[in-house]
């Protein structure tokens, strides 16, 4: 019998750094212990992994690092349930178990030569950050990059430590807004869709990627369409309860698709075709 590796069994990894992003989000730098597995963990932006705290369970987390920086993996994790609570207690040198990568990811190769518009809300920036940094590492392959990002409050903005790098990058516009300001906030106040309308990105030779809370995505999709973006130019990611990550356990089944296997990245054209419970 051919040796089959059990896809449901995770491998050991070590936390190498923890960055506090917001009151309930931390970014974990993780290195897979086994060299061979680390080599074989080839991922593309937009894919995700299953992170485990054994004895508690697994959680589906998108990879926020870029494959162009292969020394480590990064996961930005919001404390929202039992497993993520447990992950939040981890510090450098602690062990964590991991399996993946899963999902289809963004077709970044197909977008060479195009302008990119990123529209993100809250922790939704995490999977998009993978694409952004991938493009910055292959800067000449891509055109102008526009990032429109918002969060509930200034404290809820993630990756603040990276904004300067992005702002200094070639042809990179970063626009930030918050739903509600707090003391000392000098920036913009308002919802993401409003900022998007103001920024009015051109659909010409462009791809728009959006990720964030469902209600934000709903409005952003409508707005992008009315700005002239075609359904094929609009990309989003779907969220749902996932467990196996490989299209078997049935939780993320929506229409004939399994979000974990056939997604989580979908074009608006694909989304419009799916009949299911979102």
């Amino acid at each position: 019998m051919a040796a089959i590796t059990d896809m449901l069994v995770p491998v050991n990894a070590t936390v190498t750094d923890v960055i506090g992003e917001t009151p309930d989000v931390k970014t974990f730098k993780i290195k897979i212990d086994d060299g061979n597995y680390r080599e074989s963990f080839a991922y593309r932006p937009g894919q995700f992994a299953e992170l485990s705290i054994l004895g508690i369970g697994e959680s589906t987390i998108s990879i926020t690092s870029t494959p162009t920086r292969p020394d480590y993996l990064e996961f930005s994790i919001k404390r929202i349930g039992l497993v993520t609570e447990a992950i939040h207690t981890l510090v450098s040198c602690n062990k964590i178990a991991l399996r993946g990568p899963y999902g289809n990811g963004f077709p970044v190769e197909d977008w060479k030569g195009k302008d990119l518009v990123f529209v993100a809300g809250g922790i939704g920036l995490a999977p998009l950050r993978s694409v952004i940094n991938y493009m910055l590492d292959n800067r000449d392959d891509y055109g102008r990059i526009q990032l429109i990002y918002g969060a509930r409050s200034p404290q809820d903005l993630v990756f603040r430590w990276e904004y300067d790098t992005w702002r200094q990058a070639k042809d990179f516009d970063l626009e930030i807004t918050v739903d509600g300001a707090s003391e000392g906030w000098m920036g913009r106040v308002g919802f993401v869709p409003a900022l998007l309308k103001e920024a009015a990105p051109s659909p010409e030779n462009a791809i728009a990627l959006t990720c964030g809370p469902p209600v934000m995505i709903k409005f952003v999709l409508q707005d992008l369409v009315s700005m002239g973006f075609k359904s094929d130019q609009i990309i989003t990611t779907l969220e749902s309860k996932m467990q196996c990550g490989v299209g078997q356990c049935g939780r993320c089944n929506i229409g004939p698709k399994y979000i974990c296997k056939d997604g989580p990245v979908f074009t608006l054209t694909e989304l419009n075709k799916i009949k299911g419970d979102f």
């Binding site: 959680s59 929202i80 349930g81 039992l82 497993v83 993520t84 469902p214 969220e239 749902s240 309860k241 049935g250 939780r251 929506i254 299911g276 419970d277 979102f278």
Partner: peptide, 10 residues
């Protein structure tokens, strides 16, 4: 079965 950690359930 489909209840996510954040409370969303389709």
């Amino acid at each position: 079965f489909t209840l996510a950690a954040g409370g969303h359930n389709p």
